[in-house]
Amino acid sequence: MTQLVLFVIFGAITLAAAIAVVTARNLFHAVLWLLLAFFGVAGLYVLLEAPFFAAAQLFIYMGAIGVLIIYALMLTRGVMRQQVPLVNDQWALVAVLAVALLAVLSWLFLQHTWPTVDQAVGPDSLRTLGEALVDPGRYGFPFEVASVLLVMALIGAVTIVRER
């Protein structure tokens, strides 16, 4: 019961904040709404018994990505003054499409019976993750590739953004 209430609360926070992100006029406010949406998602992760990911959500999204987006906003500060229309002229069509997509997806999800198991998450779930990440038979290779990806992103981004 408590779980249900919390699910509704966090879900409502997330969705409301997300809608505010895509409709906010002031971009700085949009970023703040985005952070609130991330916070709601972190709450959902706690309900999904993945507290590590809830903390990582705060850590990465609010700590790093949020800051990065605000920095980018400040670097392109001209946008704060321009009085251009907020959205392009296809917004009504897109809104209808998005709602239709949501309806179709929801119908599909409810149609299918998912093979759920009623099993508690063990206390060692995070350790299994750690072991799986470096297991060469499982995610050992993607693990290293993730590192390469991050390195490439860093090098690329620094090359692009540097003032010469």
Partner: peptide
């Protein structure tokens, strides 16, 4: 901030690794 972001994401991978050490 970019360098920080990269190391931050790295931490998400390294914490489970250190936990299972």
């Amino acid at each position: 901030a970019l360098v920080f972001l990269v190391f931050d994401v790295e931490a998400v991978f390294l914490f489970p690794w250190a936990l299972a050490y």
